[in-house]
C-alpha cells in the first residue's frame, strides 16, 4: 500500500514539476523578448540558457511520467488523454525556446516604434500559456473548473492575433526595405505562435474534461 501511494505521490510531484517548467518557460520567453528589445544582451543570454534548461527538464519529466503510467498501468481510463495533454503542453515550451533562439540567431533589427507592439504581443502570448497551465492543473484536481480557465486562453489567443496583426500593419507602414519588413513580420508571426500552441492545448483539454465528467 505504501509502495502504491508512494509511487503516486512521486508521479503527482513530477506532473506538477512539468507544469511548473512550462509556466516558467512562458515567463522566461516574455522576459527574453523584452531583454532583446531593450538591447540587454547579458540578460538575454541568461534567458536563453534558462529556457534551454527548462525545456530539457520538461522533456525528461514527460518521458518519465509516460514510462511510469504505462509500466504500472495507472489511470487506465485517462492515460491516453493525459499523455496526449503532456505532449501538446511540451509543444508550448518548445515553441517558446525555438522563438527565443531565432531572436538570438537572426538578430532582427526592430525599430523603436515597434518595441511596444512586440512587447504587448509577447505579453499576450505568455498570458495564454499561463492560463492553459492553470487549466491543466485544474484538469488533474478539479475538472469542473477547467472551463473557467479555458475561456481566458481563448481570449488571450485572440488578443495575440489582434496585436500581431496591428504589428504587421505597423511594420509595412514604415519606410523600410521589403526584406526588412518581411523579416520583422516573420518575428511577429513567431512570437504569436506561443498563443496558438496554448490554444491547441486548450482545445484538447475541453474534450478531455468533458470525457472525465461523463
Amino acid at each position: 500500500m505504501n509502495l502504491l501511494f508512494g509511487r503516486t505521490k512521486q508521479l503527482v510531484a513530477q506532473i506538477e514539476a512539468f507544469l511548473d517548467a512550462v509556466s516558467q518557460g512562458a515567463i522566461v520567453f516574455r522576459q527574453g523578448v523584452i531583454d532583446y528589445l531593450s538591447h540587454n544582451a547579458a540578460d538575454f543570454q541568461c534567458r536563453l540558457e534558462a529556457i534551454d534548461e527548462l525545456e530539457g527538464r520538461a522533456d525528461s519529466i514527460r518521458r518519465d511520467v509516460e514510462n511510469q503510467l504505462y509500466s504500472h498501468s495507472l489511470i487506465p481510463e485517462n492515460r491516453g488523454d493525459v499523455l496526449a495533454l503532456l505532449e501538446t503542453l511540451d509543444d508550448v515550451i518548445d515553441t517558446a525556446k525555438r522563438t527565443l533562439y531565432e531572436f538570438s540567431v537572426e538578430t532582427p533589427e526592430i525599430p523603436d516604434p515597434l518595441y511596444e507592439g512586440y512587447g504587448a504581443l509577447a505579453h499576450a502570448s505568455e498570458q495564454a500559456a499561463e492560463a492553459v497551465v492553470l487549466a491543466t492543473r485544474a484538469f488533474f484536481r478539479d475538472v469542473r473548473s477547467v472551463k473557467d480557465h479555458l475561456h481566458k486562453v481563448k481570449f488571450y489567443e485572440r488578443e495575440a492575433d489582434r496585436i500581431g496583426e496591428n504589428v504587421k500593419r505597423h511594420v509595412f507602414s514604415l519606410p523600410l526595405d521589403l526584406s526588412h519588413k518581411i523579416h520583422l513580420r516573420y518575428f511577429a508571426l513567431h512570437v504569436g505562435q506561443l498563443s496558438d500552441a496554448a490554444e491547441r492545448v486548450a482545445d484538447r483539454l475541453a474534450i478531455y474534461s468533458i470525457k472525465r465528467t461523463l
Binding site: M1, L11, V12, V82, F140, R144
Partner: peptide, 17 residues
C-alpha cells in the same frame, strides 16, 4: 470526489486499493 479536489492519480490509487 468533486469536492475533495484530490489529484487524478491519488483517486486512481485509492480506487485500486
Amino acid at each position: 470526489l468533486c469536492r475533495s479536489r484530490m489529484h487524478l492519480l491519488t483517486v486512481d490509487a485509492m480506487t485500486r486499493s
